[in-house]
């Protein structure tokens, strides 16, 4: 029974990871850009939820809705002004650029909010019993919200005009241009949606995660490990990879003494290296060889 309970906790965390990784995975799949600032957008969402909670007592899940349009604009503008300039250059350039962006964001937040750990404690922070299992309330809400957003995103990408043009640009940039899609504008919209969703994920975990300016890199590394497990730009793959990582992390924290909360980076790192050695194409053959624009 303790094992099944741990498994349940892992699944709840994993569902969140699968949602958190989507922005990273779609940006990579559509533009071929590795968004090294991914974790920083999670951090921005978490700080937004914290600030809203502290100033106005707004619930983090309401903040998650509010933060999406704000971060959509941030992502759109960043892509339009900066990243579109390097999107067709070799990877070397976009990696360095995104590294600079991630360092800058983290340190702007350090200047504003200091390096202290912040936390959001909601009234319903406890847990409830169901069918003999203990369900942490917040994590359960996050899990189902994440699933809901994933379904919504899937419908958006497959049923709407904008979603279809995003997929078209990902499949064949040249052909998309020929049929009249403004690829740079589609990239900016994609970045807006992805960065917005990433910040939503950040706002949602604000109640269960210490918030500080340098919390980002762990999420970036996790995102990368999940992408290696589940493949690029595919929602079911992201969910599967997220679940796998969540379960492994949770089981290790429980069964390995002294592992503690720091286990996240190490686990992701080891999974990443193992997958890269044994299956360079990714666990589900989802990783295509990444080539620069040139």
């Amino acid at each position: 029974m303790p094992f099944l309970q741990a498994l349940l906790n892992g699944i709840l965390v994993g569902g969140f990871y699968g949602f958190m990784v989507l922005g990273f995975s779609i940006i990579w799949g559509v533009m071929g850009i590795i968004n090294l600032a991914h974790g920083e957008y999670v951090m921005m969402g978490a700080y937004f939820a914290w600030a809203m909670f502290r100033a106005f007592g707004i619930d983090p899940f309401v903040s998650a809705l509010l933060v999406f349009p704000i971060m959509f604009v941030v992502g759109y503008v960043l892509q339009w002004l900066i990243i579109n300039r390097v999107v067709e250059r070799p990877h070397l350039i976009s990696l360095l650029l995104n590294f600079g962006i991630s360092i800058s964001i983290a340190n702007i937040y350090k200047l504003i909010y200091k390096a202290d750990y912040r936390s959001v404690t909601v009234a319903y922070a406890g847990s409830f019993q169901l069918a003999g299992f203990t369900f942490p309330t917040v994590k359960t809400i996050i899990f189902f919200a994440a699933l809901l957003i994933m379904v919504g995103l899937h419908l958006f990408l497959h049923r709407t005009r904008v979603g279809k043009s995003i997929r078209a640009a990902a499949q064949n940039k040249e052909a998309a241009r020929i049929v009249g899609i403004d690829v740079h504008r589609v990239y900016a919209i994609t970045a807006g949606i992805c960065i917005g969703l990433t910040a939503v994920a950040g706002a949602m975990i604000a109640p269960i995660q210490p918030i500080f300016p340098f919390m980002g890199p762990i999420f970036t590394v996790r995102a990368f490990a999940i992408t290696a497990l589940g493949g690029l730009g595919r929602i079911p793959g992201a969910l599967l990879g997220g679940l796998l990582l969540g379960i492994v992390e949770t089981l290790l924290t429980i069964y390995v003494p002294g592992a503690g909360a720091k286990v996240g980076t190490a686990v992701s790192f080891i999974i990443l290296v193992l997958v890269l050695i044994t299956r360079p194409q990714g666990l589900l053959k989802g990783l295509r060889p990444v080539e620069g624009g040139a």
Binding site: I34, L36, H91, L92, L95, P217, I218, T220, V221, F224, A228, K262, T265, A266, S268, F269, L272, V273, L276, I277, P280, P289, V290, E291
Partner: peptide
């Protein structure tokens, strides 16, 4: 041996993770 058989970006993130992990270790 593990990371250099692959293309650039995998290597970059693996090294970033190595640095983070090394500091904790």
């Amino acid at each position: 041996a593990a990371t250099l058989r692959l293309r650039g970006p995998y290597f970059s993130i693996a090294m970033l993770a190595t640095l983070l992990a090394m500091r904790e270790i």
